[in-house]
């Protein structure tokens, strides 16, 4: 009987110890940098061998890992914790994922969401997407993405038109052809981006992705407002405005537009609109080729 009591006592003691370390442990795990969690990836050949007949599962889980990793970063940025995202590893993981499951839509979608905007690796994203078109032969999103990248980032309107045409054929929608036509003028760029982001945000089912798109969309809409006010200003006074404030003062803007990324908008000497946040919650050095200005 005494033995049993002793056992129960020591068990309780261990429970107590566990309770004591649990708090710090969970806290540690929570703050553990995500980059560490993304971890190292075996070579694609090894992955293929190890995943045996579970290639789809492993492919999906790789994509999921990147998505949660990325979602976590955005979360932390909001809490003012800055951790440089490990873009090369993310990119490699997505590549491995499509090698295992070349049909995985999430992978392409995610590549399009972060490779192009945040890393600026337009060529890599496009080659990935064009490879994916060989498999997802019915999917108009992939050529649509490629077309957008060509038009918006690379100003290659000929290639853009070609891919928009493909997207139009697959979707049966004329929208994309119209879009293709619109990019001929540089002034249409911000509207182009807005229509693209609206579409992306509309059918994103993943909350993280939706939020990302919506934030960018809000920012771009503000930019569009400022640009429109600027143009009206130029018409009226025959010169470029000096600052955003000037637009507000002259009554062309109702109030100073706020940047959802937490920055402030400003006008560049050539009249382009920029923001101190550079359209990102965090700005680790060397990882973003974008300037603060819109194209």
């Amino acid at each position: 009987m005494g033995g049993t009591k002793r056992h129960i006592l020591s068990f309780c003691l261990f429970c107590l110890c566990y309770g004591l370390i649990l708090g710090p442990f969970v806290n540690y795990m929570h703050n553990k940098p995500y980059a560490e969690k993304l971890g190292v990836l075996p070579t694609i050949a090894t992955l293929k061998f190890l995943s045996a007949d579970q290639k789809l599962l492993i492919g999906s889980s790789l994509v999921m890992r990147v998505i949660t990793y990325f979602g976590g970063l955005a979360e932390m940025a909001k809490n003012k914790i800055e951790i440089p995202p490990d873009f090369p590893v993310m990119s490699r993981t997505i590549h491995a994922a499509v090698k295992l499951d070349p049909y995985n839509n999430d992978a392409y979608y995610f590549a399009q969401s972060f490779l192009v905007w945040d890393v600026g690796q337009i060529d890599i994203a496009n080659s990935l997407l064009i490879e994916g078109m060989r498999y997802r032969t019915w999917d108009w999103y992939l050529p649509y993405f490629v077309g957008f990248n060509y038009a918006y980032f690379k100003h290659d309107f000929k290639s853009a038109a070609y891919y928009y045409q493909k997207a139009a054929e697959l979707s049966g929608q004329e929208l994309h052809i119209n879009l293709a036509g619109r990019f001929m003028q540089e002034s249409g760029q911000i509207d182009h981006a807005i229509s693209y982001l609206t579409l992306m945000a509309k059918d994103a089912s993943n909350p993280v992705a939706k939020k990302t798109f919506e934030t960018r969309l809000t920012a771009f809409k503000q930019v569009s407002l400022i640009e429109k006010a600027r143009d009206r200003f130029t018409l009226k006074y025959n010169r470029l405005p000096e600052s955003v404030d000037e637009l507000v003062r002259t009554g062309l803007l109702d109030k100073t537009p706020s940047d959802p990324y937490g920055g402030t908008f400003f006008l560049l000497p050539d009249g382009k609109v920029g923001t101190s946040s550079k359209f990102a919650f965090k700005n680790p050095k060397g990882n973003r080729p974008d300037s603060g200005a819109t194209p």
Binding site: S60, M64, I67, N105, D106, F110, S113, Y141, N206, A209
Partner: peptide, 9 residues
């Protein structure tokens, strides 16, 4: 539901 575009898949 974690999936962005292919929850059913």
């Amino acid at each position: 539901t974690l999936s962005m575009r292919q929850a059913t898949e």
